[in-house]
Design a protein around this nucleic acid. Structure first.
Lengths: 337, 337
DNA sequence: TCATCGGTGTGAAACGATTCATGAGTCAAC
DNA sequence: GTTGACTCATGAATCGTTTCACACCGATGA
């Protein structure tokens, strides 16, 4: 593989000069520069980032480690992060832990070995066992879609308690008193918070709440939940799902079972992914500003890693966005039900 | 940041010994090994992959560069690739070109600088302008979801001509004679092939075909196409879309306009993403084995990069999977239409 | 004529790991 | 007591860059 010294030889200059041509062209006379550039062209020289990084001690890559790329919510976060990174001349690599703690650990250790500039992290494991070892690497990280105390790290999240409350209030206001909450694994803070929001509203009124916990936050789990809901008596008249994938699964199960939505069962999802609006019955959902989440997280991380020229420690920030309820057909009675 | 020499000093051994403990533990006596390991623990040493890679000349990372992570089809490909990579002790990083040639170029040059082990590539640009410079880096690559001549590179794809024909035949067989094909940008080989498949069937029978080309392969473009379809006269009775995102958009537009599906308009999608089955009207779709695609591509790449120990050039392979039609409600008349 | 100075280019010292030839020590066999 | 074989550990060379102190050169000013 052709290296800088091959270029130097070809152009008849020293390797230092080649490096200057590449990194500080103004320090090199026009004629030399032209000679070096054409040598680079002819040889097809591509600079070796690992050598560069070894010398520099820092990488130009930031990582985004998400819970589930199958969830378009996280894809939107990735898009937001990439937008910001691109503005700063950084690259983003996206890793998918698939909700598995061991994969999270494996990715984190790889990222530490790569000495990435920083990590945007949407962690599986709240206990921090995975993070405990990573933290020693001193690579900065920012939590995404998870609020943590500011002394631990910066974080960008959406107020899930409010989100849960929004959904619950909407169901109460549309007259439901028998409500189910299909929640994901309670190990996830998002799930616990959404449930807390739901309870805060329902405890204050006459509605009855049943909570069904699923093992995953995906469509298949939603279908499972649907069959469990069908077996309940009295059967709830409304169901709120911890995310849109669950809601789509529940909807699918209900449609298959001939249950009319929203007449016999109202459904509210969470995230407002693009597919929510295109569902069998367009889903009412709690919208999260995913792209802005990604942008903000990347900005915080960049601020934290700084340009390395100032020594003052950047203070950590906790950014919390507000969710928004989007009402669609899945909770709006159109015919007399 | 703590390096191998800090560990060596702490454990009272040479750096070579520390390296041996990490990479060939059996070559080190038990007592020394224990001493070194505890030094590593205490100091929180994390080996620097860039130094390692600089020495080794090769990376342990393979890249997957896809057209659009917002399309679950590509997420499934990523999952498949990761499964295979994990078995080989490699890591996958996923990059999203978002159908933009300039981002593709930018990612490719980053990957070349990183000296990744190889790239699984689902390219925007068929002309190969982006690839032309990348090819000089001599980093192996395998095409995913795009067939190319075997002398150019290995490739793993699905027979899109057959896929298009499957969809068209299904529509003809269910009695349609006025058929629209909502296609993505014809710059994409997949789109051209699917159209060819459609034409091969429709030319042989009495059906009439109109082709609508969209600028993107996403839900929003599908909605646009829907409004164009609504304005046509005679209005087609069936529409085949080049992927499920387009189909979902068309479906959404039709439902919003009060057009009954499938009674007034039958719809067929492509890819059979998970959301197709959960749509407003469950979509008939042409299924592609995305995960197997990813797995196969990763396997080919790994075979190609080899273990570096043998010099015989691995011959390139062209793997082609067969698509499969999945019939659902969007093309099955249930009431008298 | 001599010091100074900006503009260019050089060469060597890092960066942090891996690897390999070599050496030091131990033990068994002759 | 010498030899050979074997086990462990060492130290230096190496990977491909960047960076920095220094050298060179022609021009300018005193």
């Amino acid at each position: 593989m052709v290296g800088i010294k091959d270029v130097a030889r070809r152009a008849g200059v020293s390797i230092g000069t080649v490096s200057n041509v590449v990194n500080r062209p103004h320090m090199v006379s026009a004629s030399t520069r032209a000679r070096v550039l054409s040598a680079i062209q002819e040889l097809g020289y591509v600079r070796d980032e690992s050598a560069r990084q070894l010398r520099a001690g820092r990488s130009r890559i930031m990582a985004l480690l998400v819970l589930d790329l199958g969830n378009p919510f996280f894809v939107d976060i990735a898009r937001g992060a990439e937008e910001t990174a691109q503005d700063e001349g950084l690259h983003v690599i996206t890793c998918d832990s698939g909700h598995q703690a061991d994969r999270e650990v494996s990715y984190l250790s790889m990222l530490a070995e790569q000495r990435v500039r920083g990590v945007l992290l949407s962690p599986v494991d709240t206990s921090g066992a995975a993070l405990a070892t990573f933290r020693r690497s001193e690579i900065p990280y920012v939590f995404v879609d998870r609020r943590v105390p500011a002394d631990e790290a910066s974080s960008v999240s959406v107020d899930d308690v409010t989100g849960g409350a929004l959904a619950a209030r909407h169901l109460v206001e549309t007259g439901h008193t028998e409500i189910a909450f299909v929640n994901g694994p309670s190990i996830l803070a998002q799930c616990r918070d959404r449930e807390a929001g739901v309870r805060s509203v329902l405890n204050a009124c006459a509605a009855r709440l049943s909570v069904l916990e699923t093992s995953e936050l995906d469509v298949a789990s939603g279908r499972d939940a649907a069959s469990r809901l069908l077996g309940m008596s009295p059967r709830p008249t409304a169901v709120f799902c911890a995310n849109d994938l669950l809601a789509l699964g529940v909807l699918q199960g209900m449609v298959a079972a001939g249950v009319r939505v929203p007449d016999e069962l109202a459904i509210v999802g969470y995230d407002d992914i693009e597919f929510a609006g295109a569902a069998a019955v367009p889903l009412t959902s709690v919208r999260q500003p995913a792209r802005r989440l990604g942008r903000a997280a990347a900005e915080l991380l960049i601020a934290e890693t700084g340009d390395g020229d100032s020594d003052e420690p950047v203070e950590r920030q906790t950014v919390v966005f507000e969710p928004e309820l989007v009402v669609r057909a899945s909770t709006s009675l159109t015919r007399s039900g």
